[in-house]
């Protein structure tokens, strides 16, 4: 099984990844194989089974509404590739 190139490109775009032309076939093949493995699930009837998103049967704890986080902008922006006047810079966004 291989993943069609068209589907692969669509998924790659959703994930914001580019695939070099020379690796497309490898990816198609490898992902196809993974999907084949994954398809083994279809053999089991799961009708009526509640999907399980968390391993523990626990409920969300709530935080009290207090300002507890201090922000050292300069320190945080030391990590940033491009900033100016405290703003993160990205190529122009056209709306």
């Amino acid at each position: 099984m291989t993943l069609e190139a068209e589907d692969l490109h669509k998924v790659a775009h959703l994930a914001r990844l580019t695939l070099d032309p020379q690796v497309i076939d490898d990816y198609s093949q490898a992902i196809g194989n993974i999907l084949e493995l994954v398809d083994e699930m279809q053999a089991i009837d799961t009708q009526g089974v509640l999907p399980m998103a968390h391993p523990m049967d626990a409920t969300q704890r709530l935080r009290s509404d207090e300002v507890t986080e201090e922000v050292d902008r300069d320190q945080l922006q030391n990590q940033a590739p491009a900033t100016e006047q405290g703003l993160y810079l990205v190529p122009r966004v056209v709306e």
């Binding site: 935080r63 509404d65 207090e66 922000v71 902008r73 405290g86 703003l87």
Partner: peptide
């Protein structure tokens, strides 16, 4: 609210850019 929905950073309007964006 005083603080954000998932963090303890302030929600005050009009602060310096990114001065209320915590980790």
């Amino acid at each position: 609210t005083e603080s954000k929905i998932f963090s303890g950073a302030s929600t005050r309007f009009g602060a310096e850019p990114n001065s209320q964006a915590c980790v």
